[in-house]
Design a protein around this nucleic acid. Structure first.
Lengths: 349, 349
DNA sequence: CTGTTAGCGCTTTCAG
DNA sequence: CTGAAAGCGCTAACAG
C-alpha cells in the first residue's frame, strides 16, 4: 500500500531532483530521464537500479521542468461555465478520469458564462501552461474558435453551443435522436397534445432537439403547434414559468417534454402547485438524465446523455490531436437513450 | 471587449517569448519580466512601451518556465473525493473563484475515495507542479498529514474527515452549532421524539453534529435515545433505509434530522413511500443546504454550510501559508445557519 | 532604473 | 546502451 515516506529526503535542499537520483544511482541524468520516460533504450539492469532509487526517495518528475524542455506539460486546460452543476459535473468528472489514466491532469478554468473571461483564459492556457484544452459549451463564436485553431493550439469542443463549425473537433450527444425517442414514447402512451420547454432559441441543443421533437410528431402525422413550445434559460424557475404558461392554454397539453432535467423538474413543480398529479394528469419527460431525476417524486423519465462519456471522448480526441495522430472523425455524436421512470403514463381518458 | 487576435504571431516559431517582446520593445528581458510581474522599479515610460508590445502580440508568460525559475507556478492542487457532487461542487467552485482572483488556477485531482491514489497524487502535486494544495475531506491519517507538512509542502485541509490534527491548517463548518440549531428548531416546534440519521461513525462531522444534537436535547431536559440514531454513508439510499428503520420503531420519531441533505431526502422518500405526509406526519431537516433542497417537494429545511466560502477560506489560508505570512488561526470554523423551508412543522397532536 | 548572467529541472540531440 | 551538453522561458541577484 502506498504511504507517504515518513522520512523526507532532507539530504537534498527541498526535494530530490533528477540529478540527485542520477548521483545516487551512479548514472547520468540522461539515463534517469530515459527510465522515467519508459524509453526502451536502457539496459534492464540499469533501469532496475534507477527505479530502485526513485522509489526509495519517492521521487517524481517536476512537470514544469518537463514541460519547458519537452513542450509537454501533462496538463490540459478545461473551460466550462459552471463547475457545481448536475450537468457539467459528470462531464468534468469523466474528462478528469480519462486524463488521470494517462497520468495527465486538468487545469480548471470556470468561465461563469463570461465571454471575455473565457477568451483571456484561453490565451493563458495556450501559453506553455497546458498541452491543449477542452472547451465545454464555449461562448466563442465559430470565428474565434477558428482563430484559436489557426494559432495551432490543440483543443476540442464538448457540447457545442452553436452549430459545430467545420474542421473543429467537437463532441456532443445525439440531440435530435434523443428528443425523437422521448417524443415517441409520449406518443406511444397516447398523448396527442405535447408541450415542449426548449432551451434558448439558437442553441445547437435547442434546435436539434426541436428537430427531433418535430420529426416524431410528423411520424405520427401531427404538426407542431408553435403555441406548445416555450423557450427557457435551461433553469428550473424558468421551467416552472414555462409550464404555467403551457398549462394555462385553452387547450393545455397532457404531456410536457422538458429539454433538460432542470426545466422538466420546474414543470413538475408547476404541476404540483396546481394540484395536478404526475403522471396521471400530466406526463413529464426530461433530458440529460442527471442525478436529479431520482431525487424528485415521482422519479423523472429522462433522455440519458452519456455525460461522463462525453468528457472521456473529448479527452481521447484531444490527445490524438495533441499527438498529431490521425483523427478520422472530427465530429462525434454519442448515442442517447430514454430512461423511463415514473413521470410518464397514458393521458387521462 | 477581449478578443482573440485573428492575426497570430507567425513571426515567431510557435508563440512569442519574453525575448521576442524584449527585442520588439528594445529593452532587456529582465525589464520585460519586471513589467510582467508588476515590479515598481521600472520607468513609467518603459513600462508603457513594453505593455504596448505585450498587448499587441497577445503575449502572456509561460507559467511552467516561471515556476521553474521562481518556484511559484501559480497552480494549486486540489484533491477531492468526487467532483460531480452537490456538496463538493460548490466548495470546489468557491476555491476556483478565489484562486482566479489571484490569477491562479486549480489542478484537479479527484481521488474517488481511494486512499492510495490520494497519496500518490499528493506526491506528484508536491513536485514542482503546484505551489500547494487543498485537500478536501482527505483520507489521510493525521500522521500522514503531518509527514506531508514536515516535507515542507504547503497545504490546507477543507472539511477534515477526522478530528483536525494540531498544527495543520484546517477549515470546516461549525458542525455542532449547526446541528444544535436544527434540533432546537424541531424542539421549538414541539417535537419530543427526534430521530437522527448520522454519517459514518467516527467522522468528524458525524461526531460533532451528534454533540450538537445531544446538547440541544439536553437543553430541553431530554436524553438522547440511542435507538433513535441510525448511521449512514451520507448517501440517499442509505438514508431511506435508515428512515425506514427509525419509522418502524415501536415508538417512532415525529421528526428526523438527516446529517446531510442526501440522507434527509432519502428519509423524505421513505416517508412518501409509507404515505406519510411531510411535514404533517413527519418533519425532516437536512444539513448542508445544497441545491437539492429546493428540488424536492416539499422544499427541505436544512442547515446551511457556507460551501463556496469554505473553498474561498481554504484558498486564502493556503495563500498565506505559501507566502509565509503570519497566520493567526490555523483552525477556522465557519458559521452555519438554519434555513427553514417546508419540511418542518409542529407534530400532529 | 536597466542590463547581464546564472541557473530552475528536465528532455534531447549528438557522440561515444 | 550511456553520457555530455545545449537549451526550454523565465526570474533573480548583481552590477552598473
Amino acid at each position: 500500500m502506498a504511504q507517504l515516506d515518513p522520512r523526507p529526503d532532507q539530504k537534498f535542499r527541498g526535494r530530490a531532483t533528477i540529478r540527485d537520483i542520477a548521483d545516487l544511482a551512479g548514472v547520468s541524468i540522461a539515463t534517469v530521464s530515459r527510465v522515467l520516460n519508459d524509453r526502451p533504450d536502457v539496459a534492464r539492469e540499469t533501469r532496475e537500479s534507477v527505479l530502485q532509487v526513485v522509489r526509495e526517495h519517492g521521487f517524481s518528475t517536476n512537470r514544469g521542468a518537463r514541460g519547458l524542455s519537452s513542450g509537454r506539460t501533462g496538463l490540459i486546460g478545461l473551460t466550462l461555465p459552471l463547475v457545481a452543476d448536475a450537468y457539467f459535473g459528470p462531464i468534468l468528472s469523466g474528462a478528469a478520469e480519462a486524463l488521470h489514466e494517462r497520468d495527465m491532469r486538468i487545469v480548471l478554468a470556470p468561465t461563469l458564462h463570461e465571454h471575455d473571461r473565457e477568451v483571456s483564459l484561453l490565451e493563458r492556457l495556450m501559453r506553455g501552461t497546458t498541452d491543449g484544452a477542452i472547451l465545454m459549451l464555449p461562448e466563442e463564436s465559430a470565428d474565434e474558435l477558428r482563430t484559436l485553431q489557426h494559432q495551432g493550439f490543440p483543443f476540442v469542443v464538448v457540447d457545442p453551443r452553436e452549430t459545430p463549425p467545420d474542421g473543429i473537433a467537437c463532441v456532443s450527444a445525439m440531440h435530435a435522436a434523443g428528443a425523437k425517442e422521448a417524443t415517441e414514447h409520449l406518443l406511444a402512451l397516447g398523448h396527442r397534445r405535447i408541450g415542449a420547454i426548449a432551451g434558448p432559441s439558437g442553441w445547437y441543443a435547442t434546435e436539434e432537439r426541436l428537430i427531433g421533437f418535430r420529426s416524431a410528431l410528423a411520424g405520427a402525422g401531427m404538426l407542431l403547434d408553435p403555441e406548445l413550445v416555450a423557450y427557457s434559460d435551461w433553469r428550473m424557475p424558468r421551467g416552472t414559468e414555462a409550464a404555467e404558461q403551457l398549462l394555462s392554454l385553452p387547450h393545455p397539453p397532457t404531456a410536457i417534454f422538458g429539454f433538460n432535467d432542470n426545466v422538466a423538474i420546474g414543470a413538475l413543480h408547476a404541476a404540483q402547485r396546481r394540484g395536478l398529479s404526475v403522471p396521471d394528469d400530466l406526463s413529464i419527460v426530461g433530458f440529460d438524465d442527471t442525478e436529479l431525476t431520482t431525487i424528485v417524486t415521482p422519479h423523472l423519465t429522462s433522455v440519458r446523455q452519456p455525460l461522463a462519456e462525453l468528457g472521456r471522448t473529448g479527452v481521447s480526441l484531444l490527445i490524438r490531436i495533441i499527438e498529431k495522430q490521425r483523427v478520422d472523425a472530427l465530429r462525434m455524436e454519442l448515442a442517447t437513450k430514454l430512461v423511463v421512470r415514473e413521470s410518464t403514463a397514458p393521458p387521462r381518458t
